[in-house]
Write a protein that binds this DNA or RNA. Structure first.
Lengths: 366, 366
DNA sequence: CTTTAGAATCTAAGCGCATAGACTATAAAC
DNA sequence: GTTTATAGTCTATGCGCTTAGATTCTAAAG
């Protein structure tokens, strides 16, 4: 049984297909009585307009696309959970054990950005098309997605810059969490500058800190950016230069690094961590080392994850407004109405200092 | 500048448009050398196939749809946060304060189901179209969504049953978290039966419980279902009939209800709660009442939220595999390839007993 | 060199809608 | 009664692709 089309509805209502179309798209051009006839016919035939045909005719789809990371299986909810990655078929009960999600990852960066993107799209009356690929067909699936939408937001870009350049000539593209570049796309990132500056200022102004050490996995671009900002601010405030510690999220490695610092009796006033997960790990290690936070040393993070609120002491951090980033992306794309940018553009989502206990304050907002 | 089409590519490559199409869709029908010519031309012209035109020609979109709740603004991440609901324009800093997310809601039901849906779609090479509505245009936006996809999953249905019936005649529809009904759709729910039975059996067999009381907001359909199962099992095991307590997630109300029970000296062996949030609240109240869990009374939940793991004592519960529910939905829809179901169907996602401390065990899985 | 099966390519039609521009009905103005 | 402006409706076309069926090319067999 074929789906009903405008032709069926038109015939049944005794009008032309144009009138059917107008009934939906420009109702005020159709006489009230006619409109009712058409809608009745449509209801009787279970008519649902084909978005494909509409999109083809209008040259616009009314959909914005978001391309997620490939490795979504590394999501903390799916991690190591056989139920997650074996597909649906091996449905036996014994598959259902597995690692429980890692609370230190909530709320997840990607998910929050995605949520903001969705909300803003709906607010604008656009639908959201999500895509990703779990096998190697990344390039193909991005192209496929691009063919379906009026604008595209990407979390990362693994292919050649030429391919992205070509894509960006055809539809508007937003690069999420990349602060700048020279392709004609919209680069969206967080306001790391003001966030990190506010941390340093707070440490100096309120807590009189002088020796500030930065800890992070330095080969992550975002981390490098934050380090540079801290360095500059520390210098501007007339403090001794900020030494970075290059570390990874591994208890043993962190332990050695920090034990070294302690042994040398060079404990700084504050350990500014590149993100909250690092900060929480650092606090774990300091606990093991018998060093009290914030009394012996201040610890701060960046991100604003849930676990930071419930840590002891509660983590002072820079809250990044992930949802805002997503909304910005959707809003920017919707505004273009399918027109690619001609020049590189960039914008930032806000970052805000949240003062809790790990700096020595008692949880007031600043 | 118009987007390139098959015609442009065909002309540039010196072939017909059919050959261009074959190059992408049936590459083995095209000679290697020709294929290369075509792909080169396509690259030079930044050609991206129009999914609209393809969908129109093939009568299939390759997209599955998920319609979320209307009130996504009630999401715990957005709750009360002005940054969330005022739209993007009022971008001043002072907007950024607001309630912090409620940890007791994680991981959120909807999000996990959605995630499963996405993963399974990608696994099947389908894109995912999400939609929702923040104003009153629910009906329209569902129809719009339906016109864009080969299959549709719905969290709930607020409109008339007739409208849903009509929808279900046109494309395959999955109703999430509704166990049965008589429309020709796929009803998907959790295996409450085996989950609740296992709880009761565990309480009886391992902890020798006899007096079991069920607590929940009884006018939620899901809660009613669970209560009935517990009642039946309790009866089957030869225990005294299971009394339900109708309660809401409000500390004061819960306090009064439980204080009453305590005053009457009728504390049961176990309080089986309809879900984890209720269980956590019950444990809060019991603490206030000076009643120890699990020594004085056993408490159990249903859901498997994160907060249950970190509660003291850790919550014994029935873990519902939300992601599985989402995967099931996507898988069922993909299988239909656009063909609506003719008869009502139903399926269940697994539910599994997770034994932790609140029943008196020490965290072993069962 | 001719025949012929099969591979490669092409021609032509149609998918369901939107909309410009043509046409008709209606009503107000003359 | 005629003219004219306007609202209402229709005809006709094109959006970019897929694919059945027609046509042409290729190469092995005779």
């Amino acid at each position: 049984m074929r789906r009903a089309t405008v032709y069926d509805v038109a015939e049944r209502a005794g009008v032309s297909i144009a009138t059917v179309s107008f009934t939906y798209r420009q109702p005020n051009r159709v006489r009230e009585s006619t409109r009712r006839k058409v809608l009745a016919a449509a209801r009787e035939l279970d008519y649902i307009p084909s978005a494909n045909a509409r999109g083809l005719a209008k040259g616009r789809t009314g959909v914005l696309g978001l391309y997620s990371f490939d490795l979504l299986l590394e999501h903390p909810l799916g991690q190591g959970n056989p139920a997650s990655d074996v597909g649906l078929k091996s449905d036996v009960d014994s598959d259902l054990d597995g690692a429980e999600p890692n609370i230190r990852a909530y709320p997840l960066y990607v998910d929050e950005v995605q949520r903001g993107f969705e909300l803003e799209c709906w607010h604008q009356g656009q639908a959201v098309l999500l895509s990703s690929s779990d096998d190697g067909k990344r390039g193909e699936s991005i192209t496929d997605l691009a063919g379906r939408v009026d604008g595209l937001a990407l979390f990362s870009w693994g292919e050649s810059p030429e391919a992205l350049k070509r894509l960006a000539k055809t539809i508007p593209v937003v690069m999420l969490s990349q602060s700048k570049g020279d392709l004609p796309v919209m680069y969206l990132s967080f306001d790391n500058e003001s966030g990190m500056n506010r941390i340093v200022d707070h440490l100096v102004d309120v807590h009189g800190a002088r020796r500030i050490v930065f800890i992070g996995t330095l080969d992550f671009p975002e981390v490098g950016v934050r380090l540079d900002i801290v360095k500059r601010r520390v210098h501007k405030r007339g403090l001794p230069a900020c030494r970075p510690i290059d570390a990874v999220l591994d208890h043993r490695v962190l332990y050695q690094a920090l034990a070294h610092v302690v042994r040398e009796d060079k404990l700084p006033d504050a350990l500014v961590c590149a993100n909250d997960q690092m900060a929480l790990s650092v606090m774990d290690v300091l606990l093991d080392l018998g060093i009290r936070v914030p009394r012996d040393v201040i610890v701060t993070g960046v991100d604003g994850i849930l676990a930071g609120r419930f840590a002891t002491p509660a983590l002072t951090t820079v809250q990044l407004y992930m949802e805002r980033l997503g909304r910005l992306a959707a809003d920017s794309l919707a505004e273009r109405d399918g027109q690619p940018w001609k020049e590189p553009r960039s914008a930032m989502a806000p970052a805000r200092l949240v003062v809790r206990e790990s700096c020595g304050c008692h949880g007031q907002a600043v």
